[in-house]
Write a protein that binds this DNA or RNA. Structure first.
Lengths: 215, 215
DNA sequence: ACCTGAACACCGTTCAAGT
DNA sequence: ACCTGAACACCGTTCAAGT
């Protein structure tokens, strides 16, 4: 729905040029995104992608050894944007308040998921991508580690009600993840077309939770 | 992992009997569950199921018009157990405390999801099943309605901190759903093999949230 | 270096025909 | 009533061969 195309350039400017210099790799990724938007991940077929980019059925395998590898590459793009969204959100807030920074990670996640539903779907489809043998696991863990550190710092400064930090963190993660997921599944029937409201409401819920664990 | 087989009886007692009276329908459903357990929903193929039950590739289509219909039938079984789990959980708690009953629904959900991961996976795979044209939507909505009523009753009796009831409900749902999902994705690395702890911890988090919105 | 064409072993689904 | 067998139009993936 809302994905800005990052690399649409260099489509086939001439037909019948056999793609000998065109940017096939990116064309394949764009085609995959199109198919996912149209009918979900299982709608992605290597042959269809090949047809869309005007290339033989075997050509995509020069760039991605496997369908999973192609989808994993889409997930890597998704992760790029995810990380960028979190960074942007953290730069918006007071630098010295760890609880506000913790919140900013949640807000960044929500913004990213709601603005990039297709990418969110791809990263969540762990049986269709290779989460472990890629930078995905590493980058995801880095974010989790950052959250832990912020929680510990918040506890050190007595900003938190006494309690299990791991539990606080898990609760916040589950809530934010659940909200994003429910939005994507269309479970917020009332704000179906109103993604601004969906974001506002989700952030309000996150804020409510954070203030409930604040000292 | 933990699914008790409900209808394992009447497997092919005699080979080569051409299944003229055996319970093919249930045999197909069991085979589907086996394949899902082994490799997720996209591992389910009509032809493989046919092979497993010793029947021709076309036979399953006498019982389910489509692969989606088969998977939807599995989802209906999942919903049966889900509803049963919630009922059981609600019968365990004080009848007259709406907030405890609200909690019981959450606990029932968590118990069900953790004990029946395969079924949870199927119901969550909304692009692989027909959620709308089945009893699934109806029964799911009934549970949501029950939650709304309990929240309203709790508010009436001044058991809740003043605030938006819809928001409380959404937050609780998102949290519980997120917890189940994260458990299934193996995101609780520490309690990987310890599903009792996973359940206890999840319930503790739910309780913490409910007490944070209690008056 | 990058792509094609043909091939292989799989799919879901349909349909005439068998019992 | 329930199943088979063959067929159709699809898959992902491989590999020799072309430019």
């Amino acid at each position: 729905m809302n994905e800005r195309p990052l690399n649409r350039g260099a489509e086939k400017t001439r037909r019948n040029c056999h793609y000998h210099h065109g940017d096939l790799r990116n064309a394949l990724l764009s085609a995959a995104m199109e198919l996912i938007e149209a009918g979900g991940i299982e709608n992605v077929s290597m042959r269809e992608i090949a047809k869309m980019t005007g290339v033989s059925p075997a050509a995509p395998f020069r760039h991605f050894p496997t369908r999973t590898a192609l989808l994993t590459a889409v997930a890597e793009e998704a992760m790029d944007r995810f990380v960028a969204c979190i960074e942007a959100s953290m730069h918006e807030c007071v630098e010295n308040d760890p609880l506000q920074q913790f919140r900013a990670i949640g807000v960044g996640f929500l913004r990213w998921a709601i603005a990039n539903p297709t990418h969110f779907q791809v990263i969540s489809a762990r049986s269709a991508i290779d989460f472990e043998n890629s930078t995905l696991r590493r980058r995801n863990d880095a974010i989790r580690t950052r959250m832990s550190e912020l929680m510990q710092e918040a506890a050190r400064r007595k900003l938190l009600r006494p309690g299990d930090l791991g539990r606080y963190q898990l609760a916040a993660r589950a809530m934010v993840y659940g909200l994003a997921r429910m939005y994507l599944d269309g479970q917020f029937s009332s704000w179906d077309l109103d993604e601004t409201k969906a974001l506002e409401e989700s952030v309000a819920i996150l804020d409510q939770y954070i203030s409930s664990i604040s000292a």
